[in-house]
Design a protein around this nucleic acid. Structure first.
Lengths: 110, 110
DNA sequence: TAGCTTTGCTATTAAATATGTAGCAATTTA
DNA sequence: TAAATTGCTACATATTTAATAGCAAAGCTA
């Protein structure tokens, strides 16, 4: 499957509306988890595999390529790391962490 | 596949960390798109199918069940709609729309 | 510098998900 | 009361993801 690009047809939008292209990209397995982990700092392929517990190398490699093509991550001497844009995106996603905790509480009480 | 629940093993976390449970839930195809569309107001099953362009009824139904179990959407006389929690979540996701536009610009210029 | 380890993958097969299409029972509308 | 709409389900197929093995290249290590 091709890397979703704004302006091209993606899941959710034939005209490739940016938000839908983003959802297509982030909606693939592990994509958000990878970004989440990389915010802590650069990481090698093998370290990412450990962090992401059960990710298969095939899938990890695919996600890394997609995120690289999308300018959200890049390779450095220390391994994969977030780009400036990638960090920006993380900062938008980050409030979800807090929200998820209250969601979890609410959940268990029901 | 079971609906991901915080506290239970999910993709990305054996202990079911809330953020990972959320990513597992939102990371399934169309999940974020459905929330996005429902923010405009309640919608029937068929309307959602139209909005989501190419979603199959099988997948839509599955997503709707998962999101309902997760207390993010509920049914009303007017169709499916976001719960209070669902709206909160949308509001956290909403900044992504703006970000995605600048991301798209950056993209096409490269 | 020969051997051992680590890293970043690829290949292959199997399992899980998503799609596409048809269609049906239960309302709602005309 | 016939026709249309809605909310699905069934089933076959296609696409994604996972699991496992393992290999080439680079970096130690003795």
């Amino acid at each position: 499957m091709a890397t979703p690009k704004p302006g091209k047809p993606v899941r959710g939008s034939k005209t490739g509306q940016p938000i839908m292209a983003l959802f297509d990209l982030l909606g693939r397995s592990w994509a958000m988890g990878i970004i989440w982990h990389l915010y802590r700092g650069p990481s090698t392929f093998r370290k990412l595999q450990e962090y992401c517990e059960s990710i298969s190398p095939t899938t990890l490699n695919k996600r890394l390529k997609e995120l690289t093509e999308s300018h959200l991550i890049e390779r450095s001497i220390d391994g994969y790391m977030l780009t400036k844009q990638g960090k920006e995106l993380f900062e938008l996603l980050s409030p979800l962490g807090k929200w998820a905790k209250t969601w979890a509480n609410n959940y268990t009480s029901k």
